[in-house]
Design a protein around this nucleic acid. Structure first.
Length: 660
DNA sequence: ATTAGGG
DNA sequence: CCCTAAT
């Protein structure tokens, strides 16, 4: 028996944009067949039985034209039932959704059977049908042989269908090997919750939902029922370098230019990772949306202080990363667009022959569109003498390392991390009409440390990642830029700081999830293309210009305050440029305006009660000096004209301070 | 480019 | 920190 996934494309108007395709030669062609086992027969019979019941059920409730159906068709009925459907499907341009063919590989070639799951729009829920389905499912579930297990999967899908959770259904990943089938996916067909769950770094792709109404209408897949149409394979596979496999034309049935268009609800973990890991392959397959903009959210900063020679060999410092996955509207997607676009064209809808179809209730589907996944904070340090090539390589290595760490996808709803993977989307509050705008995804290291809570927050808010991360992760590195202005009085560091400014701020468009429109697009996980990750420092101006975002906040360290106070004591409060030159010449991120502002706040801080002060506490001693200096210079403004006067003034100031 | 101040 | 007006 062979279960196949179908993913159609190339059907009237259905385009499967950006679907990479491996060279034909490289595609794997098939699955081996397996002989039927007793258990298989048993399972099949169960299916047939259920089908019959379902059909009856549907007939009795034929009035509900908007119900979803599941159809089980036996090859024998093909002429009667299938064909018309197929034809219709073709004509109506419906896309295949839940569909799989079982090639009951019995020696008797005529015994091919088809199992077809169809989904249609549903307006009602038929409890009986549901119950039936459950029953069936249970039966199947008791089967112990592998064959039955397969059916179990099928059952799960069916159930999923009528439960409305898995329209696409049939996503089983079967791998046929000489020794038989192997389940390559770990999808628990029975847990609906899992249907849309992101596992590991798996990207979720749910493309068929129609968010418009509680019940999504879908088109019926026109499938190739040719028993030899086995070659139609659809779905995503990460194995064999197959990122996404489009179905091959069904050979035997010319009539079946099926528009199968299956959006795989789930992309297995390896997929995403692999994708990222093998950028070359991506190209090869032309995978995707390189057009996707992958703006590294957090820029790395390449910083090297001249005297930080000890660090030179340390090319890379990686910060634990975590980030959100920004989702951007993407029309492309792996596909579901077409699915959702032509939901109303379901095949059977008006087809008299479709009387047999079953109507099964369906839930709304939530569509996600993830345009790109960002790789968060990535701090890279290379010597100034490093070549650009080295830098690129270094960055690449870092990126790869991150990906290699088996990234996890975190789901955040309203800033709260959703940890219960077993809950359904609805239960979690992720439904078409709720909270979608507060839903976000992020990448997180599977390994250790929980991401800074700060970042997990509201997608729309900027995560101040630099702060927590900096302190805990790369003290040395970071301090080089900021906090380690060790002794201001010492010669300033010769090295230049190449600061990357667009740290953690996100642009408006970064909001993870935008409103999901009725015609929601498929969830598209577009892996960041490595190239896009280039972190090559750009000129600040350029960056500034491009990224008009607020600079990251960089609280002054006590050391800096000390330096500032000292400089002001000597130079006065009206010569910020000089202060800058004297004490912060190498702290490129501190402008004279910053210093001026800081002084302003220092004065304010010094005047308020210690209880009201926030942030890193500045020693009272320093604050006292601030007030003293401020007071002094306020009275000597007139003297600041000439340098000499200033110097004299400073001396005076110091003296007065000493006296105080 | 700097400074000074308000936001 | 940002933005601006005034130098």
């Amino acid at each position: 028996m062979v279960l196949k996934k179908k993913l159609g494309h190339g059907f009237n108007g259905f385009q499967v944009p950006f679907i990479p395709r491996r060279p034909r030669s490289a595609r794997r062609s098939c699955y081996s067949k397996k002989s039927v086992e007793d258990g298989q027969v048993c399972a099949f019979e169960l299916l047939a039985s259920l089908a019959g019941k379902l059909l009856e059920e549907s007939e009795s409730s034929a009035s509900s034209n908007a119900s979803e159906g599941i159809r089980l068709v036996n090859e024998r009925d093909k002429q009667d039932e299938v064909r018309p459907l197929i034809a219709q499907g073709i004509h109506q341009g419906s896309c295949a959704e839940s569909f799989f063919m079982t090639d009951v590989a019995s020696q008797n070639s005529t015994q091919k059977s088809l199992l077809r799951a169809k989904t249609d729009s549903v307006l009602g829920c038929n409890s009986d049908v549901k119950a039936e389905a459950f029953e069936w499912e249970n039966k199947i579930g008791r089967c112990s042989n592998s064959y039955c297990n397969k059916f179990v999967e099928a059952a799960g899908d069916f159930r999923g269908s009528y439960d409305g959770n898995v329209k696409n259904g049939l996503i089983q990943e079967w791998e046929a090997g000489s020794s038989g089938f192997q389940r390559s996916t770990l999808v628990d067909k029975f847990s609906l919750k899992d249907q849309l769950e992101l596992r590991g770094s798996t990207a979720l792709i749910d493309s068929n939902s129609n968010v418009k109404s509680p019940y999504c209408s879908e088109s019926f897949p026109s499938a190739s029922f040719s028993k030899h149409g086995n070659d139609i394979k659809l779905g995503f596979r990460d194995d064999d370098e197959n990122f996404l496999r489009c179905n091959e034309v069904c050979t035997k049935s010319k009539a079946f230019r099926s528009p199968q268009h299956i959006a795989h609800p789930k992309i297995r973990k390896p997929l995403l990772c692999k994708y990222w890991k093998s950028s070359p392959k991506l190209k090869e397959c032309e995978l995707s949306r390189s057009d996707v903009d992958v703006k590294p959210l957090h820029h790395k900063r390449t910083a090297s202080h001249g005297f930080e020679t000890s660090q030179h060999n340390n090319l890379v410092k990686r910060r634990k990363f975590f980030d959100r996955v920004s989702r951007v509207t993407s029309d492309g997607g792996f596909s579901s667009e077409s699915v959702s676009n032509s939901p109303e064209k379901g095949i059977d809808r008006h087809n008299p022959n479709s009387s047999a179809k079953l109507h099964v209730p369906k839930d709304s589907h939530v569509k996600f569109s993830i345009k790109s996944l960002r790789i968060p904070d990535l701090y890279i340090e290379v010597p100034e003498t490093a070549t650009v090539g080295m830098l690129k390589r270094t960055i690449m290595e870092e990126v790869m390392a991150i990906l290699e760490d088996s990234v996890h996808v975190g789901v955040l709803l309203q800033g709260q991390k959703v940890n219960d993977d077993n809950r359904t989307l609805v239960q979690t509050g992720i439904s078409c009409k709720e909270n979608l705008d507060t839903l976000s995804f992020m990448l997180e290291p599977s390994s250790l440390l929980a991401p800074a809570a700060a970042c997990v927050g509201d997608p729309s808010s900027q995560c101040e990642t630099s702060q927590p991360t900096r302190s805990s992760e790369i003290p040395v590195l970071e301090s080089g830029n900021t906090d380690t202005l060790h002794d201001p009085s010492l010669p300033t560091n010769p090295g230049n700081l190449i600061e990357s400014n667009h740290d953690s701020t996100t642009s408006p468009t970064d909001t993870i999830i935008e409103n999901i429109t009725p015609d929601s697009k498929a969830l598209v996980a577009v892996p960041t293309s490595p190239e896009a990750l280039a972190v090559v420092p750009v000129t600040q101006k350029t960056k500034r210009a491009e990224i008009a975002q607020r600079r990251t906040r960089r609280p002054f360290s006590v050391t800096e305050v000390e330096a500032l106070v000292r400089a002001v004591e000597e130079l006065g409060t009206g010569r910020w440029r000089d202060v800058k030159l004297r004490a912060f010449e190498n702290a490129d991120h501190r402008t004279y305006v910053d210093l001026k502002d800081k002084w302003k706040t220092l004065v304010h801080t010094a005047r308020i009660s210690p209880q009201q002060r926030r942030g890193e506490q500045v020693p009272q001693e320093l604050l006292d000096r601030v007030l003293a200096a401020h007071g002094y210079w306020s009275k000597h403004q007139a003297k600041q004209n000439g340098k000499h006067q200033a110097i004299a003034g400073s001396v005076e100031c110091v003296q007065s301070l000493v006296m105080v």
